[in-house]
Amino acid sequence: MKSEITSVLLVGVGGQGVLLASEITARAALAAGYTVKTNEVHGMAQRGGSVTAHVRYGEEVFSPLVPMGEASVLGSLEEVEPIRYHNLLKPGGLAVVSAQRIIPTTVSTGQATYPADAEERLKRVFPNLVYFDAVKEAGALGNPQAANMVILGAMSTALDLSGDAWSESIAACVKPKFLELNLRAFSRGRDLV
């Protein structure tokens, strides 16, 4: 078991399933025998705001928050949110981004614009980018709600947690009737990298 801390960052917009994905990551690290800490946003930011979830694991973990430039992998369920947090990722770290655009009201009311060049900007700030439409991928498997599992599957390729640890964790976190779908979505995500 290695001594340094592995940090994982999940971002999105309130209500997208960021917290479930972070819970699954944390439990997979636990299943693999690591010490784990997580941090998540509650309260005001959940009302359609930008949300982040931090997961850190290793032999010993102190801060529950990922320091700047230390995340091994970043996953996002929205297209521009990861750009906001890109400097938390290690140089060259894996970024998995879904091509979902959730237009903030600041854009609808003309106070700001949604970047038209989101994909180019993603490529610029994330040299190691995996970019796909997770909702479409999950929809093809039967339920667009499983988009977060597709993202997580892709993220898992950059983490040293076994397939068994992931399956055990997913089984512990989702309802039995959705387990098979979620496992397939996770596996689809792995294949997309």
């Binding site: 917009v13 309130g14 005001m44 930011a45 959940q46 009302r47 359609g48 705001g49 930008s50 700047m68 430039g69 521009v80 949110e81 750009i83 906001r84 890109h86 400097n87 938390l88 990722l89 140089p91 903030p104 009201t105 600041t106 854009v107 106070q111 700001a112 614009t113 949604y114 970047p115 900007r121 700030v125």
Partner: peptide, 19 residues
Amino acid sequence: KPTHLPEEEGLPGRPPVLC
């Protein structure tokens, strides 16, 4: 010295809003 990249500018704000 920050080992990370500077913050990206020109992103639309996403404050919490009435649902």
